[in-house]
Design a protein around this nucleic acid. Structure first.
Lengths: 350, 350
DNA sequence: TTGTACGCGTTATCAC
DNA sequence: GTGATAACGCGTACAA
């Protein structure tokens, strides 16, 4: 047991132990080639024996510059966001930058807390999946000189750069697929329209219907979910069936894969595997298990990793551009057995 | 467009704008009650108009103390670890501490990189799910005065505190359950024994068999997986069936739920729903979708959130104790339709 | 109650 | 090539 509260060794301690000046120690650490091999060896030996580690805060204070980027996503547990985060990290690694990641849980208060934390820390820039559509505080931060890139939220109203995915196209992809299979009556289990993505997907659905020369209100039966998970999908479909005298829908489009899994469960309980087999189901997000289900799920996949990578890219290159960049990625439909018994082409691009 | 590279305002700038001294500004920030309401108002007004934000590094450099804890897990995407991280965060929030989270991807090099990053940052302490069983570098860090708590890895050989879950008990729970259902021949799809958890679960399996008065090598047929995911489970079971002339096993214990999902898929392809229905399957981890599958999965659940919470607790209270604390949590069996057609008791504790 | 001056550990700038 | 020293922004003891 050593004394519990001893001070960390500083460059001065290292210099003393090596019999050189602090300047030389600093040079060994930052510009090793500008120092004689002999003294360098002495310094390195001292560093080892004292087990010296740099003091990051002091270093940052002096240099002003920093290599850390902050990112805030809605929910780390959601594979969509972890994939995005990994994309960010991979891009940052190319420039030897590191990522500080936080999860807002869709809570504006938590978001503010982390924003201030990151700003006080002096991050190089910020990548944010915003909780609300009000970006004032983000604009303020940007005006203070911290570059901000919006993620998964197009910022057409501001001059803040953004990277998002085309949810309208996603809705269109899913609906067009169901229409092409001959379904002229589709139940759409959607989230509330206060969520931008949900509203956009509905718009996309309508476009597909109109493109087929049909009327949206005759084809689409939209149901608003209370919770966007498996139990929510299960309950919503059960209620629909009850409202329709025990009849199940022919085709269902779900706002995400978990909801679709709930729908599958409800259909199986209500009419067994035969009912499940003859009902077309399309999910969203293409989560890992979507392909592993009893009835593999047709789903709309979003280029998550690329989104994160691109967002980090915009952030690092942003200073070179004068105008804000707005990148919109396109989703992709992955066709599986839940809509086609023998999926020949496993995926198509729009 | 303002000038792009202007300096952040400092307390001196605030003091000048408010017509007071830097000391008063500092007092307003840190001890608001020791300053006259009038001057405080002036300072706060200046802070607002300059949109001053504290410089974290300078603050930390001066104070020495810090409120950030670092944690490194194997894989953020794994729900097990995200739950643990959330437990950590919830505990830290009680003391107004914050978490910096990183994922090592089971790569010792990434682990080292983050360890040095955290140490240079001057974290309050470190919570680590170690990549390898060699903890030398962690011991070194601890000796430099940074408290370290091991997560999901018991450290009987060192005096480093640890929080883990009893994998032997988990193996016993699963196997005892299968034995109680009358299965005297069980296929165990396990990971390589170089992974401590896998080896421990095998030990637990053997104990259950011996407790039933049977011989492990006659009852347990262990197969080592190449990949511990759905496709790995699918392939391993397909190979087993091929080796046994097309016969499928009566009972399968899988090292995690994804493997079990692959097993379900293979069984359904090989012998349809009837075969699936009469095969007993037990998974591990109790991931979210386990309950949502076509055949809800019996699984061994680990108290993830509690583990993280407890680990953070040990870290924060660690300085008060002289001896290292070793906490071991007990897993829990969640019984579902994959082993029991009508699960009456949905869960039992050991 | 408010103002002044110093120090935290590092890096950069200059003499030597 | 190496050494001495100022400066980064903030907190705080001490003086006023």
């Amino acid at each position: 047991m050593t004394s519990p509260a001893r001070r960390r060794p500083s460059v001065a301690d290292v210099a003393r132990a090596a019999g050189v000046s602090v300047g030389s120690v600093s040079n060994v650490l930052n510009r090793p080639d500008t120092v004689l091999p002999e003294t360098r060896e002495r310094v390195e030996e001292a560093i080892r024996s004292l087990s010296f580690v740099r003091n990051g805060p002091a270093r940052q204070l002096r240099r002003g510059t920093i290599t850390t980027v902050g990112a805030i996503v809605l929910d780390i547990r959601n594979p969509f966001f972890t994939d995005v985060a990994r994309g960010i990290e991979d891009r940052l690694a190319l420039d030897d930058h590191t990522l500080m990641l936080a999860s807002s849980d869709d809570d504006p208060e938590r978001e503010s807390k982390y924003l201030r934390m990151f700003e006080e820390h002096g991050v190089l820039g910020l990548l944010v999946v915003p909780t609300s559509s009000a970006h004032e505080h983000l604009v303020e931060i940007q005006e203070r000189g911290v570059p901000v890139v919006l993620l998964d939220a197009p910022s057409s109203t501001t001059d803040m750069p953004s990277v998002s995915v085309d949810d309208v196209a996603g809705g269109t992809l899913a609906m067009a697929h169901l229409l092409s299979l001959g379904h002229h009556s589709v139940v759409f289990l959607n989230g509330p329209h206060t969520i931008r993505q949900c509203q956009a997907r509905r718009t996309g659905v309508d476009r597909a219907v109109e493109a087929a020369g049909l009327a949206p209100d005759r084809v689409v039966d939209e149901v608003t979910l209370t919770t966007m998970d498996a139990s929510g999908g299960d309950a919503a479909l059960a209620a629909w069936i009850a409202r329709h005298g025990g009849r199940a829908p022919d085709a269902v489009f779900c706002v995400n894969d978990l909801v679709a899994i709930g729908v599958q469960r409800r259909l199986r309980r209500h009419g067994g595997s035969e009912l499940l087999a003859r009902t077309a189901i399309v999910g969203y997000d293409d989560i890992d298990v979507a392909a592993e289900l009893a009835q593999p799920l047709t789903s709309v996949r979003q280029p998550t990793h690329e989104m994160g990578y691109a967002a980090a890219n915009v952030l690092l290159h942003g200073a070179e551009r004068s105008d804000a960049e707005h990148i919109v990625f396109q989703p992709e439909l992955v066709v599986r057995a839940s809509t086609v018994q023998d999926p020949a082409a496993s995926s198509t691009r729009p």
